[in-house]
Nucleic acid binder design. Sequence first.
DNA 1: CATTGTGAACGGGTTCACAGCA
DNA 2: TGCTGTGAACCCGTTCACAATG
Lengths: 206, 206
Amino acid sequence: MDSNSTPDIVVGRLPRYLQALQRMAVEGISSTSSQELGERLGISAAQIRKDLSQFGEFGKQGTGYAVPYLIDQLEVILKIKRFWDIVLIGTGDLGHAIARYQGFANRGFRIAMVFDNDPVKIGTKIDHFIIQDIANLEKLVQEAGIKVAMLTVPAAAAQSVSERLVKAGVKAILSYAPTPLNLPADIHVEYIDPLIQLQHMTYYLG
Amino acid sequence: MDSNSTPDIVVGRLPRYLQALQRMAVEGISSTSSQELGERLGISAAQIRKDLSQFGEFGKQGTGYAVPYLIDQLEVILKIKRFWDIVLIGTGDLGHAIARYQGFANRGFRIAMVFDNDPVKIGTKIDHFIIQDIANLEKLVQEAGIKVAMLTVPAAAAQSVSERLVKAGVKAILSYAPTPLNLPADIHVEYIDPLIQLQHMTYYLG
DNA sequence: CATTGTGAACGGGTTCACAGCA
DNA sequence: TGCTGTGAACCCGTTCACAATG
């Protein structure tokens, strides 16, 4: 009933539950049911109950789930009742957009450092971030104890940069580079690749 | 053995196969095996063979798959031997980055129009795109026959904008807005939400 | 009475193992 | 011999259905 045996696919749904619940909270909804939550997310009520039951008994028969309490519990499970520092590598258009994105604050994350390898950019600012020289990547990341990275570098650089991140102690990488990373099994990697998702959808188009 | 019965999860892997094969082609590899491809992608050889066999017999016993031929066949299956016009809605930092991204060209997609609702932005340019008034969304999208959209608008606007896109004839939406869209079942929707993916990974961190 | 938590049944995706063939 | 294509076995996630309970 704990981390070790829980399917990864279940873990992957928890942030979605959390997101929907946070929206409900903003809307002033203080109590909900697996059915209502499921309708918002397009997920069956049974699945939501089953997923949550892997981690504890958060609801009450007849009345459902208290929204603030379930939010709190999910934040504990996902380990986001703290701030995770993020290192961002690559300050192209996409890196810029991410550095300036306000959606991470109050959601468990905070961009702490920004790196690039372009001498023209190093030392300049994006918002309040001073772009650091990637030559100092290992040193600065390790000293800061950063465990989470976002990667917006060209595909050709992604593998070597990610290896350097691992050496610096990073354990989780969210990569926007359109290439698979080959890293030790204990490193968690997720990908964002709009082209892949577009091509997936066109399969179904006339 | 065709579109109707093929699991969506299989379809979702095809673009990854294509991406890896295109990389191989660039590297000058003219022939490969399910094993080699699987190692690059972290997918079992049996799964790759099984997936491909849903669509035809593309390999040869003893020698494997001819890279250019398999690329061609996957492009046919995914319907990207043509260009799909994309409409982009929202020209914040992220919309800017997407409008300027060069990774769609030669991969089956082409951004055709860009919309925003900000009077200050309407009429100005991003690259060669003139930002259109969202008031004209339905008219222009329908006239152009555009079927694919990318959405980079605030969460609060995502539902209503997506409904307008559907009215205009759009059948596939890739949404960067951090909220689930509630649309007719025949509309294909995919999401990109880095926060969800980060929260997924922190579950596993110490 | 509404709704949870859950064992059991179900379904479908993955892996296995091997026949078939270049 | 090397590797594909595939039926069968296996595994695992989802759904079902209902006892339990506020």
